[in-house]
């Protein structure tokens, strides 16, 4: 049980980063389907940076920066040019994915064994305490993910900047009339979002795996998009959504080990099926940001 909780937190970490990022962008009125690709590019850039510098934190930083740049690209497309958000988001995903694969081949060639780095160690925190010790034995980025949840809530609901974000996502015309620079707020939101997504991807290479594979994200970005709806665009509820997905994922690992005679692929697919079901249930009361998907053009 304790191991299960610890594993849930671990699996939930990249989802929390990704979902909080997506939430920022959607709260500002932009659906960012670039998330899957940005997470992959973050995973790769984080890995490659750590591989060549030996510093894990530089890897995290680089993943964050490349995510911010991808967010800026998304902003140029959707905020300034007003291009269809679905298609430009997928375009960003395809671009980032292609770029990560291309760069991997350029830098590492086609190695027989994937190149490795020494990933983050799990921190021992209150290690002597019975139950808490094993649960709190986590990677540093997991702690940051948990801290980020109240921070994002505070930014969105208790700062002027957060008010502006919500305003441009709900009613950009009124926000503009009130003197808010809609383009700038949306752009900054997308850049923050990209940074989170990049770090979420890098968690996988720099913490859990220590190497990069082409299918490393495996639809986690799409899960994040579902979790935003499930959380009804509320940062605190993101945590519950990520725990459900993480919990089901951690549980399926356990169930596989108990030797229940069911194909393990069924367990692997389970979290995605649960996500669709959870999404369907949550969708009845979902309050989409009113200006989501609508490009804003100043007349």
């Amino acid at each position: 049980m304790i191991g299960l909780i610890a594993a849930t937190l671990r699996v939930a970490t990249p989802l929390i980063f990704g979902t909080l990022g997506e939430l920022f962008s959607e709260r500002a009125g932009i659906l960012n389907l670039g998330i899957e690709g940005i997470m992959l590019l973050g995973a790769f850039v984080g890995f490659a940076t750590t591989y060549s510098t030996g510093s894990l934190w530089l890897g995290v930083l680089a993943a964050c920066i490349v995510g911010i740049m991808a967010g800026l690209l998304m902003a140029i497309m959707t905020v300034y040019f007003g291009v269809n958000q679905h298609v430009s988001g997928l375009g960003i995903t395809l671009f980032c994915t292609g770029l990560a694969y291309y760069a991997f081949r350029v830098i590492f060639g086609t190695p027989a064994n994937p190149p490795q780095i020494q990933p983050f160690m799990q921190t021992e925190f209150l290690a002597d305490v019975n139950i808490l010790g094993p649960i709190l034995r986590q990677y540093p980025l997991t702690y940051y993910a948990m801290l980020l949840v109240p921070v994002v809530w505070w930014v969105l609901y208790r700062t002027n900047f957060g008010l502006n974000i919500r305003a441009v996502g709900e009613n950009p015309e009124a926000a503009d009339a009130a003197g808010i620079n809609v383009y700038r707020v949306r752009t900054i939101s997308l850049m923050i979002a990209g940074g989170f997504m990049g770090v979420g991807g890098a968690f996988l290479t720099l913490s859990t795996l220590g190497f990069f594979t082409f299918d490393i994200i495996a639809g986690r970005g799409w899960v994040c998009i579902a979790l935003v709806i499930f959380a009804n665009w509320n940062p605190i509820r993101v945590l519950w959504g990520a725990f459900i997905f993480g919990g089901v994922s951690a549980l399926q690992l356990r169930l596989q080990l108990t030797g229940i005679n069911l194909p393990y692929e069924l367990f692997l697919a389970l979290p995605y099926v649960v996500t669709i079901i959870a999404l369907t249930i949550a969708n009845r009361n979902a309050a989409y940001p009113a200006a989501l998907l609508k490009p804003y053009k100043r007349e």
């Binding site: 639809g219 899960v223 579902a226 692929e265 697919a269 995605y272």
Partner: peptide, 22 residues
């Protein structure tokens, strides 16, 4: 039920990978 098809079709893409692997 007015569930956004973008998210669900994307998730279905992930699910079938596991079906094929099985």
């Amino acid at each position: 039920l007015k569930v956004d098809e973008v998210v669900t079709t994307l998730l279905m893409n992930s699910i079938i990978v596991f079906l094929v692997s099985y």
